[in-house]
Amino acid sequence: MEIDPFVFRLSIFILSIFVGYYVVWSVTPSLHTPLMSVTNAISSVIIVGAIIAALAGKGNVIFNQASIFGYLAIILAAVNIFGGFLVTQRMLAMYKKKKK
């Protein structure tokens, strides 16, 4: 009997929750705002689904019912990716140590 690939994905998912749990507890509280903005940015990796959806049009049809939603999702996710990483960068650049 072969194991259903779903079980592998579920394993990855469960283990990642644990990884996330320990990694996030080690985040210093002063960086909790950047943590939120960067998690925002990385969860927009959903853009890969949007790209697949957008490019799935058959033949010369660029915009069909399904791909339009893909294109819209690309815009939304792109706002988030660029916005999220850049605003995180901007915040992190402000954290400075005391001048000795």
Binding site: I12, S16, I17, V19, G20, V24, V45, I52
Partner: peptide
Amino acid sequence: AAAGIGFTLENTALIITGALVGSSGAIL
């Protein structure tokens, strides 16, 4: 939500990220 879509698309990056973000928000 991202993790749910990750399962649909069978995409590891999305599943890992979804789990990370999900547990991060829960801890906060």
